[in-house]
């Protein structure tokens, strides 16, 4: 049942939106360029009923060029399937479009991704830290942040 839905969705994505999705661990995976991100999220939301943004995070590949993957997970409350959208950004300009015009939840999750990985989200006006504090230097979940570096406040 679940597999059938995934298969159908995959075909629809290919035919109707020209997106080649792969399957991984029961998830549809899309890998796209950063400048197409907003358009694809729009298509996913309006055409394919992916109406829930579950997570925004990033992966640091220190040896790779471009260095970061920004990863989004969407969920369809209609079909009960998930899709993962990945886009690679470079170390020199780790910048992608914000999805806050489509999903309200993007506001907070982009803030967290920004403080932990230093990914900038264009058009998100409020990228203050949530879990960290003002004055914290560096991005702790990047692989080059020293494991034992502390930044005490008192």
């Amino acid at each position: 049942m679940h597999d059938a839905i995934l298969k159908r969705l995959r075909e629809r994505l290919a035919v109707e939106a020209g997106l080649a999705a792969t399957l991984s661990q029961g998830l549809l995976v899309l890998v796209q360029k950063p400048d197409e991100l907003l358009a694809i999220a729009q298509t996913l939301k309006h055409k394919f009923a992916f109406d829930l943004l579950l997570d925004v995070t990033a992966v640091d590949w220190p040896q790779r060029q471009p260095r970061f993957d920004v990863v989004y997970h969407f969920y369809s409350t209609q079909d009960h399937v998930r899709v993962r959208l990945k886009t690679a950004v470079s170390e020199t300009s780790p910048e992608v479009d914000s999805l806050r015009s489509l999903y309200g939840s993007a506001n907070i999750m982009e803030r967290e991704c920004h403080e932990m990985y230093g990914i900038r989200f264009r058009d998100n006006p409020d990228l203050r830290p949530i879990l960290l504090y003002e004055g914290f230097e560096g991005y702790p979940l990047r692989k080059d942040y020293p494991k034992q570096r502390e930044q005490p406040q008192v």
């Binding site: 930044q151 005490p152 406040q153 008192v154």
Partner: peptide, 9 residues
């Protein structure tokens, strides 16, 4: 954690 330390103090 470090964020909480000022509160504790």
């Amino acid at each position: 954690n470090h964020k909480q330390a000022p509160v504790l103090r």
